[in-house]
Simulated scan of single mutants.
Amino acid sequence: MSQIYLAGPFFSDEQIDRVKRVELALDANPTVTDYYSPRQHQKTDNPEFTSPWAAEVFQRDVNNVTNADIVLSIIDYRDEDADSGTAFEQGMAWVQKKPIIVLNERQFPVNLMLSESLTAYITKADDLMMYDFNETPPLPFTGELF
């Protein structure tokens, strides 16, 4: 039984759709019992996009990365690069020696800091339905680096 932290951008309709498809894949995966998706936890008692809101969301997300056993990092963002917040969370996971599962559906070139820190590299959200999150088998990065 592992707690998964789902790191990924959800700023556009395409990104929200991708995160929702990943959530559905995790729901369907028999090795997943629990996951935390920041997309579902943006509300605070403070107005959105204010400093108090940002401080609360930041602390909540940092606590959940720290408490997670695994980080699932969606690196599809824009301009063929990962979202900076997602990269920050993936870096936290690496420092804490947690398995990092990376999803790159658009298969754009990947920064070596992300490719070298991952445990498994996946290019289709549907493949997450069958990935063994208990054993976290390695799936090496394949693709173009920068």
Rank of each mutant, 00 (worst) to 15 (best):
Q107G: 11
Q107L: 10
W94A: 12
P9E: 04
M113G: 00
L128Y: 06
F146A: 11
A55I: 11
V102Q: 03
P38Y: 05
Q96R: 15
S37R: 00
E23K: 11
L112Q: 11
Y131A: 03
F58W: 13
N134E: 13
L139V: 15
W53M: 08
I70T: 01
E48C: 06
A82V: 10
Q59C: 02
I122R: 06
N134K: 11
I74W: 09
F11Y: 13
E14T: 12
V65A: 03
D132C: 06
V19Q: 13
M129V: 15
L103W: 07
Y36L: 04
N104K: 06
T66V: 12
A28Q: 14
Y35H: 04
N67S: 10
I100P: 04
L72P: 03
D17F: 11
F49P: 00
S84H: 10
F141H: 11
I101E: 06
F141G: 08
I122E: 05
L112I: 14
I101R: 07
F141N: 10
G85Q: 05
P137D: 04
A68T: 01
N46I: 00
N104C: 13
G91T: 06
S117C: 11
R106L: 14
F11T: 10
T119Y: 03
T44Y: 08
N29S: 00
M113I: 13
E89G: 04
D83I: 02
K98A: 08
I70L: 01
N46E: 15
S84G: 06
E14G: 00
D61R: 08
A87R: 09
A55V: 11
T50W: 08
G8H: 02
E23Y: 02
D83C: 11
F88Q: 05
D34C: 09
P137N: 04
A68G: 04
A25T: 01
N104V: 03
T66H: 14
Q90N: 02
L26G: 02
N111K: 11
F49D: 15
A125S: 14
E135S: 12
N67C: 01
E116G: 14
D17R: 13
V62P: 06
M130P: 00
S115G: 04
D126F: 11
